[in-house]
Amino acid sequence: MQELLSEVVIPTMSYISRIIVPMLEGTVVTLKLFFITIILSIPLGVLIALARISKYKLLSSAVATYIWLLRGTPLLLQVFFVYYGLPNFGIVLDNFPASCIAFVLNYAAYLAEIFRAGIQSIDKGQYEGAKVLGFTYWQTMWRVILPQTVRRVLPPVSNEAITLVKDTALVYAIGLGELLRATKIAVSRDAVTSPFVVAAVFYLAMTFVLTKVFDKLEKRFAVY
């Protein structure tokens, strides 16, 4: 009995070596989705944040509606919508690009609110200091406000990044071969649950590295 339990839950080295390759392949897909989402959603989030605080009411309320829609519905629903819903409008996407689109749009909405909070936390004296030196709006944003915002938003962005690593598991639902799907395939095929433990270790490793990266970034920005 004892032997059987450990066989099922705790993977042996020989078993791990059999499942490691498909799980690593799944991790590559997970990481691809992660990086594409991070790289595209951050600049998009900045633009959305700036639009949200724009003095042009129409732009600001359009963006507020966007944020409400994207934060107000499940990410999985949005993935389904892009993958299953858009073909009704003649847009047929493979599951990977569909996932990327849904993730980027969703994460940009969350990040935009973090960036907005960061931007609005900067003292108005900074805008005045820049203005009397002749800075334009974009020069002020780019050279004065956003650089100071980066430091303040690092902790909440780090939170989002960690959530994102784990949210990638959602796309399992549209058949994308990421880490969790590779895990589930092994579990079903071999009638053991030990691959879940391996998957947990993989996720933990990824979030560990992320945590360290953000720690480094915070230290680097703490010079002033």
Binding site: G125, V132, G134, F135, V144, Y224
Partner: peptide, 26 residues
């Protein structure tokens, strides 16, 4: 030129960076 009660220096720039910022950028 304007000088404020609360300085309004750019905290993320060094002293030199604060002074050359406007001549270089603007």
């Amino acid at each position: 030129g304007m000088v404020f009660q609360n300085f309004n220096l750019f905290p993320h720039k060094t002293v030199l960076g604060n002074i050359i910022e406007a001549p270089v950028i603007v």
